[in-house]
Design a binder for these strands. Structure first.
Length: 202
DNA sequence: GCAATGATGCACT
DNA sequence: GTGCATCATTGCG
């Protein structure tokens, strides 16, 4: 039986949490069924000095979860139609989170396909932050949800340990902000993994 | 290449 | 309070 990741794991520096989340299993319980995928691509958003972070201008109603306790979800709506899932890191009061950008589908795949609409190839099921939220039925109701408590319907389990040589760091996708934000290599992904959203620039 | 689609944040009254 | 540009994306042309 795989062990659920506890709050102490998230309560550490965000870049370390981001790196170590690669290979772990994201699990969503939906009507008693397990929907799950292996995390293969993430991005870190750290503090108010990160000009591309939603927390850059301080705490608001939308980003409040980022300022909350670690081990909770931060979910927001983007472009009026897609959701993005983040896992809150570091101590309460310090706004930081890891965006889950892509997973490899592992459990409940037929249900995930249904949630996404069947047309597209399996490869596109969970490749991208908006797509994986659709496939795992994650929406704003999960904003602030506890990933570590007994009632959790969404959590992460220890699964595969990724060797450091297999991990690539690159600049984040789709970020705005100043040069520092654009160039910070705070995206982590598994080398040559077919389920990542986009190949690294280099 | 670009429209879809709506919540958010910020400037300004 | 109101108006409007922006947006950590996706899918179709």
């Amino acid at each position: 039986m795989r062990k659920r990741i506890a709050r102490e794991f998230y309560a550490r520096p965000t870049l370390i949490v981001a790196r170590e989340l690669l290979g772990q299993r994201l699990v969503r319980r939906l009507d008693g069924e397990r929907l799950a995928g292996r995390i293969v691509e993430v991005e870190a958003y750290i503090g108010t000095t990160d000009r591309s972070s939603h927390a850059r201008s301080g705490k608001t109603a939308r980003n409040a979860a980022m300022f909350g306790a670690p081990g909770h979800a931060y979910v927001y709506l983007i472009y009026g139609m897609y959701h993005c899932l983040n896992l809150v890191t570091e101590a309460a009061g310090f706004p930081a989170a890891v965006l889950i950008r892509a997973v490899e589908p592992l459990e409940g795949i037929p249900t995930q396909r249904q949630l996404r609409g069947m047309q597209r190839p399996l490869r596109d099921l969970t490749r991208g932050p908006g797509r994986l939220c659709q496939a795992l039925a994650i929406d704003r109701l999960f904003d602030g949800a506890d990933l570590c408590g007994p009632q959790a319907q969404l959590w992460v389990e220890y699964d595969e340990k990724i060797p450091p040589a297999q991990i690539i760091q690159s600049p984040r996708i789709g970020v705005r902000g100043d040069t520092a934000a654009l160039t910070a290599p705070w995206r982590f992904l598994i080398r040559d993994n077919p389920w990542i959203s986009r190949k690294p620039a280099n």
